[in-house]
Design a protein around this nucleic acid. Structure first.
Lengths: 104, 104
DNA sequence: CAGTATCCTTCCGGATACTG
DNA sequence: CAGTATCCGGAAGGATACTG
């Protein structure tokens, strides 16, 4: 569809992680796996429907993983796959850039 | 509005560069300044209205700069500011991640 | 060449209410 | 707790035609 150009690989990246909240969710999961409600309180301004939708997308993209622990009551945790964890350096660079250049 | 949290600085970043085409445009300008039509042919699937809109946004954010050379005919070039150029490491990391993890 | 104007459809995402 | 269903307004963005 598009020419082979070495810069073209950036477009899919932003389609994967450019949506609202996605970066925040990934960042929150980088440190450790979290339950739905933990994510919910970590990012208070993000409502449940959005969170659910984003998590489902991240699962489909192979970035996040949903694990069910059959305890009583069940414990459901979201964590990152290798692919997801591999985003850390990039997010770190973005974060650094924000520190340097975004002053409110 | 939201709690002070060290991860919160990622949200504005994606608001700045998360929109469709933005990453591609910045990447294209990293190597060298380009004219409108050059950008247009570099990213063929991006139409003129979008390109114009994104460039205007990037200017407002202080990431790109529009320079008019009063030659005949006038030559208009778009380049990156220091702030824009500072995004290179982050884009590189994202690009690396794409190479490693996005196989069609 | 370097855009702008207009139209029009799809997608996004917030609020709210409900479920096992 | 961990979500899903539904509704709905507004923004995003593609196509096309036009301008100095």
């Amino acid at each position: 569809m598009v020419n082979h150009d070495q810069c073209m690989n950036l477009d899919p990246v932003f389609e994967l992680i450019g949506k609202k909240w996605t970066g925040l969710i990934i960042h929150a999961l980088l440190k450790e796996s979290k339950r739905f409600s933990e994510l919910h309180t970590t990012i208070p301004s993000l409502n449940a429907r959005m969170l659910s939708e984003r998590l489902k997308e991240l699962e489909e993209k192979g970035i996040a993983r949903r694990t069910v622990y059959p305890t009583t009551p069940v414990r459901i945790e979201y964590g990152l796959t290798e692919k997801g964890k591999a985003l850390e350096p990039a997010l770190l660079e973005l974060s650094k850039w924000a520190d340097d250049w975004i002053h409110e």
